[in-house]
Amino acid sequence: MTASTLAAGTATPSRWPGLLRRHSAMPLVIAAALLGTYLWVRSSRLDDIEQRSLNATTLLRLLRQHLELTAVTTVVVVVLAVGAGILLTRPALRWLAPGATALANIGQATPAIGLLVLLSIWLGIGFTTALIGLIAYAVLPVLQNTIVGINQVDRSLVQAGKGIGMSPLAVLVRVELPLALPVIMAGIRTALVLAVGVATLAAFINVGGLGELIVTGIKLQRASVLVTGAVLTAALALALDWLGGLISDLLRPRGVA
């Protein structure tokens, strides 16, 4: 039996050059925006109020608070939404999927600020309240992408896996999830960016974060504070999205376009 041979090419080419090419622009853009804002603030004379907000200690504290809120939200959302998405694609529970997506839709369709205010009336103000609001807001893209990602895996491959004697768990872990990963990661990235943006609203219920700069800037009419808050938030969102893209590309299984 002779095999008609394709052009030889056993080794898969390294993925690093492609990665560098695709992911090197964004850090430069972010760095340029941050540097521009810094130079602008630096060159203007800051009054008392501005100085109270625009100093390294305060900025770092706010950034840390913002990151904390975003990170905890993302972790909880990934666990909840990916878990739920997996359950909702199992044959026994598939019928529940439309209902669950509709429910998650409500969380996202409600105006974020309204949701936070309503929650704080119910639960009081604080970190937990902000967290719950953010989670409700960010669950949908991850849930939906998990369901879509798993459902778009070629059914014949799932059949093949089952047919050669893989357990349902093995089919999920070795076939369905790896092949759904790019779609799921895209959902997580969307959720991440949403979370960074919506986390600015946490300032309204006294949880801090970069939103505090924006709120202060608006209330006290200090453009420098407002712009700094906005630029930092945007830069953070872009940076996290960039990181998500990089991770997604690194995790992307070989042989999947």
């Binding site: 093949a160 047919g163 299984p253 999947v256």
Partner: peptide, 10 residues
Amino acid sequence: IQQGGLFPHM
């Protein structure tokens, strides 16, 4: 099965 049903990522 048809076309082998091979897992494309393995």
